[in-house]
């Protein structure tokens, strides 16, 4: 196992360095501040939802490690145009993948390019880094507020 092949791949390093959709959305009722007390990472997610429960825009701000930032960045690029129901399915699949309960090579999924995070399952202390943005997304869909990874 190599951290460069499994964890710090070029796409992840690129999204860390040049995060996409790294901005606030001011006029939305859907936002949430996510916090990982273990490492101090803070990811804030903003969502704009169009009629038909379609994600019209999604963005993030905050500070964190390369994994949490890249995960948030890739998540925002992946979700635009998806419905909330589709987003929740992908959240479940992503969660299972990083915990090692879903193998994208052999099982059906809708994760697309997000499978780049499957190597995280080998780094148990970093799983929460990868999933912080997704937990915060679910919080933002349901309500405005705060969520803490326990």
């Amino acid at each position: 196992m190599s951290y460069q092949n499994e964890l710090y791949q070029q796409v992840i390093l690129d999204h860390n360095k040049n995060p996409r959709n790294f901005r606030e959305i001011g006029d939305t009722a859907h936002s949430c501040n996510g916090h990982n007390p273990l490492c101090g990472d803070k990811i804030n997610i903003y969502l704009k939802i169009a009629p038909g429960d379609v994600i019209e825009d999604v963005s993030f701000t905050g500070s964190g490690c390369a994994i949490s930032k890249a995960s948030a960045s890739l998540m925002t690029t992946f979700l635009k145009g998806k419905t909330l129901a589709e987003a929740k399915v992908v959240f479940e699949e992503f969660h299972k993948m990083v915990l090692g309960d879903l193998d994208p090579a052999t099982q059906q999924h809708h994760l697309g390019k997000l499978t780049i995070f499957q190597g995280v399952r080998e780094f148990s202390s970093r799983i929460k880094c990868a999933s912080l943005a997704w937990h915060t997304l679910i919080c933002a869909i349901d309500k405005t507020g705060e969520t803490t990874m326990e």
Binding site: Y3, D41, A66, I67, F123
Partner: peptide, 10 residues
């Protein structure tokens, strides 16, 4: 260059 968590993993 890197967040403390990334430093520690590497």
């Amino acid at each position: 260059a890197a967040h403390p968590h990334d430093i520690v993993t590497i």
